[in-house]
Design a protein around this nucleic acid. Sequence first.
DNA 1: GTCTATAAAAGGATAGAC
DNA 2: GTCTATCCTTTTATAGAC
Lengths: 202, 202
Amino acid sequence: MPKISEARKSERKRQILLASARRFARQGFAETTILDICREAGLSPGAVYTYFDSKEAIIAAMAELGAQQSAARMDAARSGLDPLTRLRMFLSEFSRPEAAQVNQYDLRIWAEAIGNAGLRSIYLRSRAQLIEALGDIAQPLAARRGVDPGLLAELIAAVAIGSEVRKAIEPEADVLPVLGVLFALLASGRPTTDDGPAQADA
Amino acid sequence: MPKISEARKSERKRQILLASARRFARQGFAETTILDICREAGLSPGAVYTYFDSKEAIIAAMAELGAQQSAARMDAARSGLDPLTRLRMFLSEFSRPEAAQVNQYDLRIWAEAIGNAGLRSIYLRSRAQLIEALGDIAQPLAARRGVDPGLLAELIAAVAIGSEVRKAIEPEADVLPVLGVLFALLASGRPTTDDGPAQADA
DNA sequence: GTCTATAAAAGGATAGAC
DNA sequence: GTCTATCCTTTTATAGAC
C-alpha cells in the first residue's frame, strides 16, 4: 500500500472538485452534467466515478472544500489591527475581480441549502464561524454604540451576504462605496475614540 | 371570441403559476419537473402545455409575476409616515411566517439569474425599483448623517437581501433584532431630530 | 487507472381520444 | 380543454477492453 498512491488519489479528487466548482458556479448544480465535469477536468466518466460514487457525492465534497477555503479566507483578517481596519480587510474581499466566481458559487450553495440537508448543515457551520469571527471584530465597535455585539456581527454578515448576492449577479458592480457607508455609520458614533483610527471613506 | 374564455384562460394560467411558485421555492427550477407542477396544480401535462409552450416559459412568466408582487409589496410601505417608521414597515415583511416561501423563491431566482439572461433582466429591473423606493425613505436619514442617499439605499438593500437569504435557509430565524441594530445606527446620529420619532428597539 | 461504449432511467414535450 | 399514453432526448451510472 504505497503512500504515493494515496497522495495521487487525493490530488485527483481535488482536480475533479475544482473543475466541478467552476462549472457549478457558472451553471448551477442541476444544470451541470457529469459529462460537463468530465470535460472540465479532462477525464472520462469512468475515471471520475473511480473517485466519486455519484454526482451527489461530488456536490457534498465540494461544499466541504468550499467551507474550508472560506474559513481560511476569514483567518486572513485576524491580524492585530484596529477593528475598523480589520473589518475593511475582511469586506474588501469583494473588490477582487476573481471573487465573482466565489460569490456565484456561494449563491448557488445558499439556494441549494434550502432543500439539501447536507448543504444546509455545512452552511450553518460555515455561517457560525463567520459570526464568531465578526463578533471578535465587532465587539469594540458595539460597545461604543451600546448595541449587542452578536447582533452587530449578524448585521455585518447580512451586509456581506447581500453584497455577495449582488456581485454574483452583477460582477461589474462596485460594492465598496456601499460598504463605506456602513463604515461611516459604525465610525461616527463618537468622533473621538480610544481604539484606533476610524475613517469613513472607502 | 367570448370574453369569459379569455378570463378563464388567464385564471388557469395564474393557477399554474402559483403552483409552480410553491414547487420552485421548495425544490428549485431544475429539480422541479413538469410532472411536479402538474400534480401541484391538479392538471395533466396536456392541459399545462395548452397554456405554456415550455417549462422555460413557465419560469419566465412566474418571474414576471413575482416581480409584480414584489413591487406591490413595496408600495405598501409608501405611506406618509416618518422615514424610520416606513423603513420599519418595509423591513418587517421579514417577520411574517408566510414570508419564508417568498424568501426561498427570491433566493432561487437570484441564483438562477447568474446564468439566465431573462431572469437577470427581471432581477435588475426589480432591484432598481427597490433602490428607488428605499432612496425616498433614506433621503432624510442620509442628509442627517452626511452620507450619499443612493449609497445608503444600497446598504439597506444589502441588509434586506442578506436577511432574506438567511430567512430562506433558516425560516425559524428571527432577523428583526438584527434589523433593530440597523435602526439604532441610523437613528443615533443626532438623538434630537425634527422628522419624527426614532426608537432603536425592534 | 483510464478509456469507450452502452445500459437504464428520467424528464420534456406531443399525439390522439374523449 | 383536458386526459392518457408514449415518443424522444438527455443524463446518470456501469461494463468491459486496454
